[in-house]
Amino acid sequence: MLQQGLERYLQVFTRLHLGLQGLDDCLTEQVEFRDPFNHVQGRAAVQRVLQHFIEHVSEPRFVIQHCAWSGSLCFVRWDFSGVVKGLGDWCFPGVSELHFDEQGRVLRHLDHWDAGTHFYSRLPLLGWLNRTLVARLTAVPHPPYKADE
């Protein structure tokens, strides 16, 4: 039941460019969703967050790399790519922590990815500030992340 719930849910994300069909059936009524920009609770709130995402990111694409289970918790490693209005091409890796109920519906969806490196550093003023702070705090300089690595 849990594996089927995961497959249905991931299908929504791998087809975001087509809309949110099937999302409500994958979520509990009081689902919690958190990523670096949002923290909401409830199906309608999650739907609004994802609809906003679809409206502002064209050609969204999630490629699932790996899934690991521990009881009713699944960690999903993914790579995202898309085009953001005003920023251009955008790609980064991340992990979703998905908690499921007994019917295979998502109770909690917590996204973990580096917004400082993969978003804020690309903004004109914030990017400069972010890069300056990172340079001062980093013991060993490292090259910026590239999606194809």
Rank of each mutant, 00 (worst) to 15 (best):
T14W: 01
P60F: 02
Q65T: 04
V63E: 14
L123T: 00
S72F: 03
S121D: 06
H112W: 08
M1C: 06
C26G: 02
V140C: 08
W113R: 06
R122H: 14
N130W: 06
I54D: 00
L87M: 15
V84G: 07
D101R: 01
L110M: 08
W128E: 05
D101H: 01
V63T: 15
R131C: 06
R8F: 03
R122K: 13
R15S: 14
V134R: 14
F75G: 05
Q3Y: 12
H52C: 05
E7S: 13
P36C: 02
D101F: 01
C26H: 04
Y145T: 13
T132M: 10
L23K: 00
E59Y: 10
Q103H: 07
H142A: 13
G127R: 05
H17M: 09
W113T: 05
P124K: 09
V57M: 10
C67M: 07
W128N: 04
H52P: 05
G104D: 03
H99D: 04
Q4A: 15
P93D: 05
E7H: 12
F62P: 09
F37T: 04
L23D: 02
Q4I: 13
N38Q: 14
L6G: 04
Y9I: 04
L20S: 02
V40P: 08
Q3G: 06
G5W: 03
L129R: 10
D101G: 00
R105W: 00
D114R: 01
A135I: 07
L20Y: 02
C91N: 12
G22T: 11
Q21S: 15
L129S: 07
V76S: 11
F80I: 04
Q47C: 08
C26S: 04
C91L: 03
F92N: 04
V57E: 08
L107G: 00
A135N: 09
R131L: 10
H52G: 11
R43D: 00
G71C: 05
L123Q: 00
V63N: 12
G127C: 07
R122Y: 08
R34N: 03
F92E: 02
Q21I: 13
R77C: 05
V83S: 00
E32Q: 14
R77S: 09
L137N: 12
R15T: 15
R108E: 07
G116P: 04
V140K: 14
G127A: 03
R122S: 10
G82Y: 11
L27M: 11
R34Q: 15
I54S: 01
Q3P: 07
T138R: 14
M1P: 12
R61N: 13
E102K: 08
V40T: 05
L123I: 01
F75D: 03
F100Y: 12
Q65H: 09
F62T: 10
G5M: 03
W90A: 09
C74V: 07
R15M: 09
S58G: 10
S70Q: 15
W90C: 13
H39W: 13
L10Q: 13
E29S: 11
L129E: 05
E29A: 14
T132L: 12
E55S: 15
